[in-house]
């Protein structure tokens, strides 16, 4: 395969034409089409979404495979590596701003919307006697109980913090040339991430069955599930990325001077970790 249109010594590496991005676009189109059909109850929805997801998985694997092969072949130099690092940073910033929006929603609903709703005089509201409080399922919502922050959430905080130290430790050891221990630590990080997800699933299950805290539980349930749900989704993505790094480590990839993939995943994992800490404080605790 010809990957280098322009790989003269010292020149910036510009990859030759690639079929992977448009493959991903086609997959994403069918995934979105499937999503739009699915929420409207069309029988074609799940099929379109499944086909789209399959194409996407293929596209992502092929694309990253190509990048890894190029990296192994040594076409990237300092400048290309810096592009990757900057790109990853700005990607994480955009992700952080997405979560910032969701936290903004939480604060707005709690500090502005609910008190505003309770402040109307009896002439202007159908819900006379609605008192501002948090948590609330609103004037027309069913009652529920909240998750105890010092149960599963506190344990999960511990798990994620530990996993942050294991992934950083792995990175440090790789820089010192101890690939074997680094691999073990990444494996441990993956196990901790899986434990976190398992606990989180258990917590959602309990919330639905015994606490009656559901998506329908007014604005508290909505903000609770969108924040914790998107965080869990990001943990899942992080776990997939960590697994790729684990596989690459066992095959002898990465060295002290060549570890962008590892570093990027480690940054991402720390980002997910920081989001969790904010989430623990503002969603579970306060």
């Amino acid at each position: 395969m010809n990957t280098g249109a322009h790989a003269e010594k010292g020149g910036y590496f510009v990859p030759s034409p690639s079929p992977f991005p448009i493959t991903l676009s086609v997959g994403l189109f069918f995934l979105c089409l499937g999503g739009a059909l699915l929420v409207n109850g069309s029988a074609a929805g799940p099929w379109a979404a499944a086909v789209g997801a399959a194409i996407m998985v293929f596209g992502i694997v092929a694309w990253f495979g190509a990048v890894i092969r190029e990296s192994r072949a040594g076409v990237y130099h300092k400048q290309e590596a810096r592009s990757f690092r900057l790109g990853m940073w700005w990607f994480i910033i955009s992700e952080a701003l997405f979560f910032a929006s969701l936290f903004g929603v939480l604060f707005y609903e709690r500090v502005i919307a609910v008190p505003w709703l309770a402040s109307f005089s009896a002439h202007f509201t159908p819900w006379v006697g609605f008192k501002a409080a948090w948590p609330t399922s609103g004037p027309a919502g069913a009652s529920f109980r909240v998750v105890n922050p010092w149960g599963i959430p506190a344990l999960n905080t511990l798990i994620l913090l530990t996993s942050a130290s294991t992934v950083t430790g792995g990175h440090d050891l790789l820089m010192k040339g101890d690939r074997r221990t680094a691999t073990h630590l990444v494996g441990l990080t993956i196990l901790l991430g899986l434990a976190f997800l398992g606990m989180q699933a258990r917590e959602f299950y309990d919330a639905y069955t015994t606490l009656h805290l559901t998506l329908h539980s007014g604005v508290y349930g909505a903000t609770f599930y969108i924040l914790t749900g998107f965080h869990a989704l990001h943990v899942t993505i992080g776990l997939v990325m960590l697994s790729v790094i684990f596989g690459r480590l066992t095959r002898g990839h990465f060295g002290p001077g060549d570890h962008f993939g590892f570093q990027a995943v480690s940054w991402y994992w720390h980002f997910v970790d920081v989001v969790w800490l904010i989430l623990f404080v503002f969603v579970y605790w306060l």
Binding site: E109, T214, H216, V219, Y225, I226
Partner: peptide, 21 residues
């Protein structure tokens, strides 16, 4: 999307949400 199909109340005052959001 969630308000439309998954029964959340981000933008619905009945559940304590706010369309102005």
């Amino acid at each position: 999307l969630a308000d439309r199909h998954f029964g959340t109340h981000f933008f619905s005052a009945a559940g304590g949400g706010d369309p102005v959001l």
